[in-house]
Each structure stands twice: as structure tokens, then as C-alpha cells.
Amino acid sequence: MNTASHTPAAVPPASAESASRASVMTRPGADAVKVKGWLRAHKWLLLRRLSQLGILALFMFGPWFGLWIVKGNLSSSLTLGVLPLTDPYLLLQSIAAGQVPYKEALLGGGIVAAFYLLLGGRLFCSWVCPVNMVTDAAAWLRRRLGIKGGKVPSEYTRYWLLGLTVLASALTGSIAWEWVNPVSMLHRGLIFGFGLSWGIVLSVFLYDLLFASRGWCGHVCPMGAFYGVLNSAALIRVTADKRSGCDDCMDCFAVCPEPQVIRPALKAVAQDHPLILDKDCTSCGRCIDVCGKDVFRLTTRFDRSES
């Protein structure tokens, strides 16, 4: 395994570094666990799982216990019989397909769009979307198994796909992305029953595991791209305000589902302030967790301070 053990007299510094790099790639955040303790090194991850599972539970209480807090699913729902919420991406496709939805759906879509436009669209991806747990699991297993390679599509694929799904909706006169959307298939499957939809969810898992690191959520999903557009003026943002303390351990890059967003803020590439303003950042907070030096924290987009 370790070539260094055969030559204990002179460990070449380069190989020691590469060995530690390798451990970063399989177990990022080990340093943070040592420094901050397991709980603090998983704080945002746990909060996120709590949010994802909590929201799912609100939908499940009805079918499981007859406690109808939220009816429906993420596509459209009614909370406590008064609050309509509808996925604006679905509405966009429906309107493109030539339908004018009722005001309940438009109101629901408006509320959802306003919420995410204000706080940050991709909060949906990391704090609500059930597929996040699937792709996070794939990414975790991929790191653990040391699976390398594959072919990652361009991160702009999703934006092309976003445009194409709207175009396809207009051309076919149906809500095009719903024929395949693993997000709604998983969520609806959990609440109403899967049929063979689990196959689509499984293929997303296998795609991320074997073919493309963070392939689905980070490169392909047009729903994520739609919420990415809503993320352009996100209020909630991650800042690398203690970037002077960064020791280049690379843990944040290893766990980040959108690693390209970190560099400008952390290394002051093409910007001075330490705020991650890239619309692809999902504000998942995993970088905050795994950083042993507490470089990152959650703040607002107006906080450009650096300490």
C-alpha cells in the first residue's frame, strides 16, 4: 500500500504530501473533526438533513398517520388547507406548453419563486430536494471507494437543458421534463408510490457514483439550473472571510458539490471580497463543516468584511 513504509529512512516530502492529499480525497474533514469535534464538523450537514427529512416528513404525515399538514408533493402542495405552493419551473413549462394555470398555481408559484429569489434559489437543491441525499450518498461512496475518472459534462449542460426543456414543452405541448425528472419521481414516489421510478433515481445514483463526480446536481439537472437562475441575487451566501487562515488542505474542494465556486472567494481570483457570489453555490454549508480553520461562515450577500 504505502511505498513510504519500505523506505522509512528517507520519506520524500512529495509522496507524504500526495498521501495526505489522497486521504483528503477519501475522508475530507478529518482534520475538522479533530479540531472541532464530530458534531460541529457536521453541523450544517445535520441541519440540512433535518430540513430535507423534516420537509419530507410533513408530506408523509398525511399518508402515514392521516395528519394532513401538507397535501400534494413538491410539484404543487397545499399546506394546512390555505397555503398553496407550486414549483415555478413546472409552471414555466406548463405556460410554454400553452396552458394558463389557475390563480392558485400562479400564486403558489409566485410565493415559491419570491422566497427563493430573495433567500437564494439553490437553497432548494441543498435544503429541500430529496435527490440531494441520493447524490450526496453517491459522492460520499465515490470518495470512499476512490473511484476516479468518468466523463463529467460541462457545468453549463444544465442551462442548455433548462432552455431545451422549456422549448420541448412548447413544441410537444406537454410538461416535458416531467417525463424523466428524477426529483419529482423520487418525491412523488416516496409519497404516492414508485412503480419503476426507483430505476430513474438509481440511475442518477449510479451516474454520480461511476460516471461523473457530482454529475447530476452539479452539471445536468435543469431544475437545479432553474433554481440557479433564481440564485443570482441570493441573500444568504457563504463567505471565506477568514481566508488568511487557509492551509490549502483542499477539504472544502473535496466536499463542495460545485467546487468551481470556491476559488474566486478563497483565493481572490477575479474578485477582492471573500464572498461566494457564484449562482451555482447551493449554500449547503458543507465547506464550513469540513474546514478545520473555520475559514467559511454563512452570511448575507452584503457582508463583504474580511477578518
Partner: peptide, 8 residues
């Protein structure tokens, strides 16, 4: 084109 498949 109209059904968002929410199950309401």
C-alpha cells in the same frame, strides 16, 4: 400540458 402531477 396543465397537470403538474401533484396528487391534490
Amino acid at each position: 400540458a396543465a397537470c403538474v402531477r401533484c396528487g391534490l
